[in-house]
Amino acid sequence: MEWINVILQGVLVGGLYAMFAAGLSLIFGVMRLVNIAHGDLIVLAAYLALVTTETLGIGPLTSLIVVVPLMALIGYALQPLVLNRTLGDDLLPPLLVTFGLSVIIQNGLLSLFTADSLKLQAGDIEVATIRLVDGVYVGVLPLLQFVVAVAVIAALQFVFYRTALGRAFRATADDPAVAQLMGLDNRHVFALAMAASLAVVAIAGVFLAVRANFDPTQGPSRLIFGFEAVIIGGLGSLWGTFAGGLLLGVAQAIGAHLDPGWQILAGHIAFLIVLAVRPAGLFPKVRT
């Protein structure tokens, strides 16, 4: 029974990791850009939720209405201002620029909010649990967050494969020059992709804020979790990334159960094992 609970908790937190990862792989898929500031942007979203709940007096989950569009707007502006000029064959410029961005965001948050650990209160929903079977309980909030994660991935999948926008994303990723011949303005497409990524980041950030303590220095570890989920799951497949997130969550839960200090290390080890044994990931999308 005990182990079932452990794995269940791992699966539920894995949904959150899958959301961290989804925004990351979206950007890499469309622009071949790895955003080192990705984790810091998740933390930024958490702080935006904090400010929104305090100034507007609304609950954290309601704050999504403000935080998601706001982050999407930031993404749409960030791309042409900073990131578009780094795109190209050389991987150093985008890596270094996003690294610089990460440093700026972390230290900006530190100076605005200090290093204190904070958490958003969502009220009764935080402690409510549902009994699945005898002895197996699942928190309402983690379950809600898991369901939202599934919905987000399904929505991204739908956009990517069944809409004109998704076609534009995939075409621009394949061949930016020929995509222009179709009348697609690359800058606009990339900006939209970044906006979508940050919208997902916003959702993840709000859930992060409610779930656990957060502080300005947590960005890099969120990036790493998202990255590990992508690699474990396999490149090129959104549902694969989702599975990767779940597996990472389970690995961490098992590690934490054995010894609280081993939680994160267990995740890293799972990642390294997959890298050693199945470098393409567990569910890679095979391109013809």
Partner: peptide
């Protein structure tokens, strides 16, 4: 210059993007 990630119909459809 066909888009490798798109199937035949999607390649045609994206031509009509405008």
């Amino acid at each position: 210059g066909l888009f490798a990630s798109l199937n035949v119909e999607e390649n045609l459809l994206i031509g009509g993007q405008l």
